[in-house]
């Protein structure tokens, strides 16, 4: 297969083309969509989803799924918020290791249940989705952490930075994406994630410690959800026990699936997922501009996921008949 053809057939190219076409179409109706300001709005919509999607991508590549990330986001954000409220003397940046560490532990619990008891991740994380959300209510006594308790310096991270005035959280999110890319491509364990996902049966024979790899992906997914929890407090300035992180898992899974990560494991790329997140961001930003009511958003997400699944399936069927193989990362 020639270079340009393989480039054309790549999932990333397809999504990039879709983004451009979508933006041009919206811009034709509403020219103000094609401005720097729109870019700012879109980029500000994406950091949380992008961070969550990096973890979820690794989990799905390893042939699992993590439905509990929204509840982990809520619980870690609440713990950080309670630190701000009840222990204001603690330096606020400590909230980062606290939330990330707690998220990693919650993720490890998922991973441990999946590996030690050989349980399907979807049921385990459906259970912990409920469990972690309940814990959020209990530790907070069902009380919201109001804006006044969240440190101004943390809130400012969503608004400013020294570089071109692009908010810090956007840098952090893309930094996480870069790290994930490096992890997936250039570390041994990262490559093992892909090997495990493409053939779980053969993985132990190839010297892969399945337990360790599985625990690692769930811990990363949890830790990144914890980071997203802090980002939530920064972006929205409050933490609510019931709303914070609710439904996050669906947005993230949508982005990951659109980004070309195969739910059959072993296949997925960081650039693809980043583009998937951006495409969802474009859709979210364009709907209100076009005057389309927010009630349609959920249906659009659902339809987009299904279309992505069907396309993915078609591509794989075609790939198989032509005898070509799509590599991992």
């Amino acid at each position: 297969m020639t270079g340009w053809r393989s480039l054309l057939l790549r999932r990333e190219t397809g999504i990039a083309v879709m983004i451009v076409l979508f933006c041009l179409a919206v811009g034709a109706v509403k020219p103000q969509f094609l401005t720097l300001n729109s870019l700012r709005i879109i980029l500000l919509l994406t950091p949380l989803i992008l961070i969550g999607a990096m973890g979820q991508m690794l989990v799905i590549v390893a042939r699992h799924v993590d439905l509990s990330i929204g509840s982990i986001l809520g619980l870690t954000a609440m713990v950080a918020g309670m630190m701000f409220r009840y222990a204001p003397e603690v330096p606020w940046p400590l909230a980062f290791p606290l939330a990330i560490g707690l998220g990693a532990v919650l993720g490890l619990v998922n991973g441990a249940l999946v590996t030690l008891f050989r349980l399907p991740a979807i049921i385990v994380t459906l259970g912990t989705l409920s469990l972690y959300r309940g814990m959020t209510f209990i530790i907070s006594d069902a009380k919201q952490i109001d804006r006044q308790y969240v440190p101004s310096a943390l809130k400012a991270m969503s608004q400013t930075s020294p570089v071109f005035g692009i908010p810090w959280i956007i840098f952090i999110a893309f930094g996480v994406a870069l790290l994930t890319w490096w992890f997936a491509m250039h570390t041994r364990i990262g490559r093992q994630v892909f090997a495990l996902g493409s053939n779980p049966v053969a993985a132990p024979l190839r010297g892969i410690n399945v337990t360790r790899v599985t625990l690692t992906v769930f811990a990363i997914s949890g830790a990144l959800s914890g980071l997203a929890g802090i980002m939530y407090a920064s972006r929205w300035g409050f933490v609510n026990p019931s709303n914070t992180g609710n439904g996050f898992e669906f947005q993230v899974i949508a982005a990951v699936v659109i980004g070309g990560v195969s739910i059959n494991g072993g296949v997925g790329t960081v650039p693809g997922v980043v583009l998937g997140v951006l495409l969802l961001g474009c859709v979210s930003a364009a709907l209100p501009l076009l005057g389309i009511p927010g009630t349609t958003q959920s249906a659009i997400y659902g339809a987009v996921i299904l279309i992505a699944l069907v396309i993915d399936r078609m591509v794989r069927m075609q790939g198989r008949t032509r005898g070509t193989q799509r590599a991992g990362a």
Binding site: F33, N37, I41, S284, A285, P288, L289, G294
Partner: peptide, 21 residues
């Protein structure tokens, strides 16, 4: 007259769209 569905994310994008439109 626009509707943010009492969600911070949607309310924010609706507000941004008001300013742009």
């Amino acid at each position: 007259t626009v509707y943010g569905d009492d969600q911070p994310e949607k309310s924010t994008t609706e507000m941004e769209a008001l300013l742009a439109n």
